[in-house]
């Protein structure tokens, strides 16, 4: 038998070693998804966001929490709303902000995603906000950046969009308070929606009484119930007695590939009209992550109606993103 030198087992790793977004004390290092997070993490973000609401209402809207820090918005996919609210949030925290729209064709010219990152690191950045068309892109980047850099997922493929979900939670908490008594319905293209996945995850972490999805089977991922939702195919049944209705955007290209026969039929079956909204509780709120398609998934009358909180969502988005940025930057500073 040959003599072998036995290598010691991999060094004793901290319990969060498999979760790149948590540090050894379980604090949020990056914000990539809700994987491995607890209700406390979410509540902390919501509470901090609440404290920033005051800042945003003052005439001078700046706080110096990120002074001297450089935030790079790296958008590999088009976005207006998310990018601008991240920009505003960073500026209100007094950070220097650089926004880059990198079309995917530029990266296929030979520079790999890692090359792009190394270049930006070399410019002494402190935080990356990433939007990318591939699921897992933010995880990939967080796993490969220099240790002092914090990464925030601004939406990756069909996987997660955690800051959007947090601003939705913030909106719900402000309007409805306690999650444990709420019924929430998410309507539309769940299959392709990173927003829906993150909302479902967050709502469950906050112990929401009931989370429903309403969609035809072609727009639901397999085993969607394993995410912790009740599945409804009929709009009237699914909306019955809910406190919150979240509509999702329907992409035009879904008519190709056989997901849906037509926009008309989708609107007939799943469009949120004033009449349909009667199924929900009288004080139910209507949300939409935007941009919405009037007459495709939502009736104008509903979108502009008294139950709609769609514009508040946008306003709250700034406070919530300020909260996330200041929190992960503080934690990054602590562990670096």
């Amino acid at each position: 038998m040959s003599l072998k030198i036995l290598r010691p087992a991999p060094s004793s790793l901290h319990p969060n070693a498999n979760n790149v977004q948590l540090d050894e004390n379980g604090k949020l290092r990056h914000f990539l998804s809700f994987d491995g997070l607890k209700a406390d993490h979410l509540t902390e973000i919501l509470d901090i966001a609440e404290s920033f609401m005051g800042v945003n209402e003052k005439s001078s809207k700046k706080v110096p929490l990120l002074r001297g820090k450089t935030v790079v918005n790296l958008f590999f996919e088009n976005s207006t709303r998310t990018r601008t609210t991240f920009e505003l949030a960073a500026k209100r925290l007094s950070a220097d902000v650089l926004s880059m729209n990198i079309s995917t064709s530029a990266t296929t010219k030979g520079e790999t995603l890692l090359d792009t990152l190394r270049n930006l690191e070399a410019m002494q950045s402190d935080m990356f906000v990433i939007r990318h068309a591939d699921s897992g892109a933010a995880h990939f980047i967080a796993s490969h950046v220099a240790p002092h850099i914090a990464v925030i997922n601004g939406g990756d493929g069909q996987h997660a969009h955690p800051t959007q979900a947090m601003l939705d939670m913030f909106t719900i908490r402000r309007c409805k308070g306690d999650f444990t008594r709420l019924k929430v319905a998410i309507v539309g293209d769940i299959l392709h929606s990173r927003v829906a996945r993150s909302q479902i995850h967050a709502l469950n972490l906050l112990n929401t009484a009931e989370v429903r999805v309403i969609a035809p089977r072609t727009l639901l991922p397999e085993r969607v119930e394993s995410l912790g939702v009740q599945v409804y195919h009929k709009m009237d049944d699914g909306l019955h007695d809910v406190d919150v209705v979240i509509m999702l955007r329907l992409q035009r290209e879904r008519m190709k590939g056989g997901f849906l026969p037509s926009r008309d039929e989708f609107y007939q079956q799943y469009g949120l009209t004033q009449a349909r909204l009667q199924q929900a509780k009288p004080d139910a709120i209507v949300m939409h992550p935007g941009p919405s398609n009037r007459g495709v998934e939502i009736e104008s009358q509903v979108q502009d109606g008294p139950q709609s909180v769609i514009l508040q969502q946008v306003t709250y988005g700034i406070a919530v993103r300020m909260a996330v940025m200041s929190l992960v930057m503080r934690n990054a500073g602590a562990s670096a």
């Binding site: 699921s135 897992g136 990756d156 493929g157 069909q158 996987h159 997660a160 990173r194 996945r197 991922p221 397999e222 085993r223 969607v224 394993s226 995410l227």
Partner: peptide, 13 residues
Amino acid sequence: HEGAVATRLGLNA
């Protein structure tokens, strides 16, 4: 694989 994991991770399955 089309199943719970791909659904959670948002991967084409």
